[in-house]
Amino acid sequence: MVIPPSLSHLAASKGPPRPGSAAGTGADDELPKIESKNLNFFYGSSQALFDICLPIRARHVTALIGPSGCGKSTFLRTLNRMNDLIEVRRLTGQVLLDGVDVYDPEIDVVALRKRVGMVFQKSNPFPKSIYENVAYGPRIAGTNKRSILDGIVEDSLKKSALWDEVRNRLNDSALNLSGGQQQRLCIARALATSPEVLLMDEPASALDPSSTSRIEDLVSELKENYTIVIVTHNMQQAARVSDYTAFFYQGKLVEMGETSTLFLKPKEKQTEDYITGRFG
């Protein structure tokens, strides 16, 4: 099923935002959790994204594929405003999270990033202990009670399937973990702030096959509770883990649809060429 364009208008007509709609009812799942509308993005004078209209369904995995430099990472970063860190940038259009424009001047970026977590391509654990890495998010949000933090750390590490491996060495430096463990720690760290959306920027590209499959299993488990957007270079990975796939090419959204449809019966010639390996 391709999400019909008409669905995108529902979000706008929904009226005021509903706070705390993370654990929404089944009806909410039919609405896009995040939706970009006519999104253009410029690095300085060069345009990186052209008029992207992309709805992302709640509690499903949406994969963004495309050749290098096609703008999929840039798009991902517009969703939690990580692109704000770039000094020379310009953005037009809207990104709606539960119907609210995240680029509205009234929006608190810090609160937004707590709702929209992010996992990076290269694992970037803080040079601190495993415990402190996971507890950092809740801590800076004002949770200081040890018993609550202990619970959050254990819960997050369990969700990221790392608990059994590190339960006895929570105070070791996170930098002593293997690459795959570090990436799962970063996922645990993102989950600790109980986000509604999880953005993953090629989370397995630097990992060996067994670590990659663990991350993929994790993504499939996490979609029960989280809306996941995953950028990947690996089309098999996109096919394995995602429910919806969007194909980007040269800053434009070429095609978006249910993963099985897009991979088996692509509508666009460019998509077909890319997924059959004729370019990219």
Binding site: R113, G117, M118, F120, N124, G137, I140, A141
Partner: peptide, 15 residues
């Protein structure tokens, strides 16, 4: 200090 550390912190909602 690598930017990835800063980005990791910002992405968790740190000011």
């Amino acid at each position: 200090v690598p930017p990835s550390i800063r980005h990791g912190s910002y992405a968790l909602g740190a000011t």
